[in-house]
Write a protein that binds this DNA or RNA. Sequence first.
DNA 1: TATTAGCACTCTAATAATGTGAGTGCTAAA
DNA 2: TTTAGCACTCACATTATTAGAGTGCTAATA
Lengths: 353, 353
Amino acid sequence: MDLCLDERSKKIFQAIVQNYIKTAEPVGSRTIARHYNLGISPATIRNVMNDLEEMGLITQPHTSAGRIPTHKGYRFYVDSLMERSKLTKHEEENIQIKYNDKTNEYTDEIFHLTSKLLSAISNYAGVAIAPITSKSKIKKIEFINVSSKKILMILITDSNQVKNKIIDISEEISSDELHIISKMFTDKLKDSSLYEIRNSIKNEILLANKFEINKPEYNELFKKTIHFAESCLNIEVDKDIYLEGAANILKHPEFSKINKTKDLIKLFEEKKDLFKIVARTVETDGAKVYIGEENNISEMNNCSVVICSYKVKNLPGGIIGIIGPTRMKYGKIFSIVEYTSFQLENILKLLID
Amino acid sequence: MDLCLDERSKKIFQAIVQNYIKTAEPVGSRTIARHYNLGISPATIRNVMNDLEEMGLITQPHTSAGRIPTHKGYRFYVDSLMERSKLTKHEEENIQIKYNDKTNEYTDEIFHLTSKLLSAISNYAGVAIAPITSKSKIKKIEFINVSSKKILMILITDSNQVKNKIIDISEEISSDELHIISKMFTDKLKDSSLYEIRNSIKNEILLANKFEINKPEYNELFKKTIHFAESCLNIEVDKDIYLEGAANILKHPEFSKINKTKDLIKLFEEKKDLFKIVARTVETDGAKVYIGEENNISEMNNCSVVICSYKVKNLPGGIIGIIGPTRMKYGKIFSIVEYTSFQLENILKLLID
DNA sequence: TATTAGCACTCTAATAATGTGAGTGCTAAA
DNA sequence: TTTAGCACTCACATTATTAGAGTGCTAATA
């Protein structure tokens, strides 16, 4: 966005945004004159503010109030004026320590931890999405008999995500036989992406040939396995998204009235919508923000979402992010999200091979 | 609680409670005289109300207001006066249909569904706790190699709960060897309760003897397995408790001010505390309620928790419940929780063998 | 021409004043 | 024992009043 603002207007605009972010109060010309010594009088500032308002960057809640940034204003601020504020040593260490505690295990716990971290450091809500499985490849398939006619199917992806499901079968299969079948299935399906599997379902017979299946019980297992693998495609929205610190958001004055806040809380419960908001971009180049109405959901009109993707094995993995009020410390939040993404990638490298 | 109330007082008290539950407004003597034709005048009712107040069953928010039940009042109502209100055919069918959709799979999804059901039917928050594992017994232990020095450990309990974890080992073990080890471990540890395992950790050597272990890499695996089994004891509070419909609670007028409500939301996020509140009783005989202060947590002073345990294989399993305002439709909620528990038990019977 | 001082004006938010009504407790009569 | 009647209380809604922060405009100034 190029707005051809002269230097002075930029300074004033910046002052307005920063002051409003800090105080949550509309900013008047006097305040700026006093606190930011720009060497000009309130009257001059007022003139400039008038221009800024005409450009749609700021607005007045009511006639005799100071100015607050519009969404367009925040967007301009983020794109052109914002300065990243680095994390403190303490904050960086905090992140590292928490991650290192988990170094010895790879479970979804990592993502849960990530959302907690993001929330704790930012004082807003933190969100993390486990690697999006549709692009994952199968590393291993395994079958274990649970009882006479129930089998536990286990699918391990190349990013070491473990999915499992208990299915019923019509004929008992022995443990040893299952072991052999497991090896066979792994052998045949290894390195297929779940995406490929979905496409190949329509050609089940084709695939069946690949297995040279003759025993009917194998065939049953085969079909169920394929369908299981396919179901892993459909992101388990409720499980793969971690949200923490929603209550943090309520601290801020813009959420002091219950009515709209109630809707927001509801949105947070409905992981499905939340997922859409956070994961609409699969891959970002650094942090990226959606401001207020840009989220295209009325409940989020007063919220901004800062997201950043992370990689697993140098391929797109998932998304992490922070949700807070539009009146957000963008500079800091951008840094937090990017740094956390970086550390998460590091830890994942250690845990996956 | 025996309060020696004469019939008339009981009627009046009941009228107050029911009216307050319906309207959320303090109930005055005139209201009762008009709407519940007890054949007595407001003045008489006032006299009785005075008595009831002295007994601590009702109170006045302020001098010139009507009466509302105290916690003691609710307790008396629940224990002595409440009438269960049956579920409608429609509600019962709703529950059955939802469960039947899941008949073919046993995963934690069942408990998630349960909390959703409870929430949807009650219009309050629904909560479900997966079977408490400390009393579960081991049915199967299985090892799968994920990569050269990483092994996926899988533990299946007698209630078919699947726990898994990826661990590092120092020496590679082949798939076939792992298959044999799996059988051996399952054989030795089968039917041990996790509780027993915890106790036996101190006697690790004793147990080691049982395995006649000589290969050092088996020994390593053995130790890690035991510790994994033990860690399954520590309920994964974040995973094993399902809360849905927290936003429902906010609809009700007693939660119209943000401040206290904020704390409640926070409590709901902290699954640990929630767990303590819901799961302090392992087994109930029918539904059971904790009213307001009985929860011993200030955030819950305006909430009641109706819980009911469910069984798995005729042994204590977990807990389900509903959290709502103390001004709750107790009669209905008790029925919902008990009926749902019953249906849940049925479905679990089908899914576990 | 750009800036600024000054002033009238606007609007919110806080505070105070007032009235209304629901509900009570008490007393005396039924 | 019950009830009618009445004085009293208190929350809540309504209205008035005031203070103050901030603006826009105009005319003077640099």
